[in-house]
Design a protein around this nucleic acid. Structure first.
Lengths: 343, 343
DNA sequence: TGTTAGCACTCTCTTGAAGTGAGTGCTAAT
DNA sequence: ATTAGCACTCACTTCAAGAGAGTGCTAACA
């Protein structure tokens, strides 16, 4: 349990370090408006805080720097729960610029968020979790190849090409599309393979001559992993952070950013409210010295998407949390309107 | 006109610098196997080469470094025209790994190429130039919104969502799709807007009640720029090059890589054979101290795509040119087979 | 006459010493 | 309980010295 004074010092120290990225000394703290102790007193307090593990020295006679534990305390205790309305209207602003398509708006929002914060923004569309199939179509390109197109209820389009089995006739193909459409309408994309295996096997068997090969092809066409839809903004903004001053760090960061599956890992378990993960609290090695702040947004009644900001542990937590809270509300509202409009 | 000896020195010097990235001195050159002159003699030759502008000093008593003019001479004179078959089979290798879709194969090839060279690979699909419309479909998501889907002859799928004008009826929509399909089949994507403006205006006017709004919506749905399809590999590989040792360079490089339109600019005028652009020869500022090597590949009879490698001016030109030549042949061959199969 | 050995010179880079400054911990006085 | 004072530590800067790699020029050589 920290005393009033310890808390004051800790908070002001972290605030200062977040701003300047420089170790903070006792003299500097004593000059701050809201602190009225002499440097010597502050040194005593800092010695205590260091012993408890909230702050650290970079070398024996340096100023102090927050530890991850310090940041954790800071986030848990010094940041008020964000107000409902921050007066920030990113989406409105983006839409004024004339973007009409849903995906464009999200992408642009990610960029705006990054420009405001100088961190990297990642928005995970809700489609992964719960979007459902609206329509399925097969377009034949030639006698041997075709493209299967899946349209979701959010207007997202997935497609993959496949070879048409030799034995199957155009009319069989059409029949199959009809069956699939009637039976798979409204099914969440992620459950397609399962559904295909359980209910549809017998139907296809009845209608189609060469069951085995057809089924196999169908499965490979539908059942593969659906790529996650990620919207990333400000991959270069983050380079302005002094923490990214050596090439090796930049390398591991960008290596991670190239791998979308890995990025999605970051968001595991972040499905609800605002979550802050500081440094080592992240399980992934590539972000062990970064912080990840995630916030969820609502799509309809039970679908959620995630918005994340990625920056150094020395992050402007206060600002970012407010911002993210406001923005995810905005997203939810915008999507609510959009959904109503589409019903 | 360079003498035999000058050419020898220049070539060996550049070879060495490409390998080591260190300024090359006369002593070092004299120890090379194929050079039998003393350091003093070599110094005289280097003084001449410097006067002519082929090599430079980094400071008054340093070894020499090739100038861009030197690299140009090197590329034009010291690199034999690549052999037909290099024995390298990237695509085969990639396909053995089990990738089936066209786009996946190209993407993976880009990555392999980058891993071999440690430069960044960019492959520009042929679809931009000459792919034609195979089928057009409209899927309605709700009373007010729909997705328009364009499938090309290469199996590429483009889609964008739009709002359905209030006055238009489902049957009108269907009629329109039929008209569009019959009239736009086989038309190159890039010519769609034009075609729409010229031939189709009157037809739509006849069939559809509220011509004005319908036409306007259709145009916005079809006529926007089609995003280029770029396959990029090894964005992080290039960071291993010693030239990328400061954050500012990395920043401008990645800033460019985020902008696909800008990347495509790089490839202007590179539609035929192998082209090497060294440093300032590039018009774009972001690559003024890099080299770009491009090679074209054939798709069918008259469509071409482009493969590019991006690296420091100190590039392994010999190796890269051979590699790129072989790989673009491979691509052409693979696409030829693919096309025959699809006819 | 082309080549090379020799030498003075230049510039970078490394090393170490000295000095500066920011910061600390401890002790004693208030 | 707080703070002034002081000795101490460590990083960083500056400077000089020396080493090393390289050059250009001149004179000797084959």
């Amino acid at each position: 349990m920290l005393s009033e004074r310890q808390m004051l010092i800790l908070q002001v120290l972290i605030d200062d370090f977040i701003e300047t990225a420089q170790p903070v000394g006792s003299r500097k703290l004593s000059q701050k408006g809201n602190i009225s102790y002499s440097p010597a007193t502050i040194r005593n307090v800092m010695a205590d805080l260091e012993e408890m593990g909230y702050i650290e020295k970079t070398h024996s006679s340096s100023g102090r720097v927050p530890s991850e534990m310090g940041y954790r305390y800071y986030v848990d205790n010094f940041i008020p729960f964000p107000q409902k309305d921050s007066g920030l209207h990113v989406i409105e602003q983006v839409m004024e610029e004339g973007f009409v398509e849903f995906e464009q708006i999200v992408q642009k929002s990610a960029e705006v968020l990054s420009d405001i914060t100088n961190y990297t923004t990642i928005i995970l569309g809700p489609e992964i979790f719960e979007t459902t199939l609206k329509q399925l179509q097969i377009v034949t390109l030639s006698a041997h190849t075709a493209v299967i197109i899946l349209v979701t209820n959010t207007g997202h389009v997935e497609h993959r090409s496949f070879s048409i089995p030799a034995h199957i006739s155009p009319s069989d193909l059409e029949k199959m599309v009809n069956i699939l459409n009637s039976r798979l309408y409204g099914v969440p994309l992620v459950k397609l393979p399962q559904k295909l295996n359980s209910e549809l096997v017998s139907m296809i068997r009845d209608y189609v001559d060469d069951f085995e090969t057809t089924y196999q092809y169908l499965q490979s066409a539908i059942a593969g992993d659906f790529p996650l839809k990620l919207y990333i903004g400000g991959k270069t903004n983050i380079l302005t952070q002094p923490e990214f001053n050596n090439v090796e760090k930049i390398r591991t960061f960008y290596a991670m950013m190239e791998n979308e599956a890995e990025i999605a890992q970051l968001f595991k378990g972040a499905t609800n409210g605002i979550k802050v993960r500081i440094g080592q609290e992240n399980k992934m090695d590539a972000v062990k010295d970064l912080s990840v702040i995630t916030s969820s947004y609502q799509l309809g009644d039970d679908n959620t998407g995630i918005i994340g900001l990625l920056g150094p542990t020395r992050m402007e937590y206060r600002k970012v949390i407010t911002l993210l809270h406001a923005f995810s509300n905005e997203m939810s509202d915008a999507l609510y309107v959009w959904f109503k409009h589409n019903e």
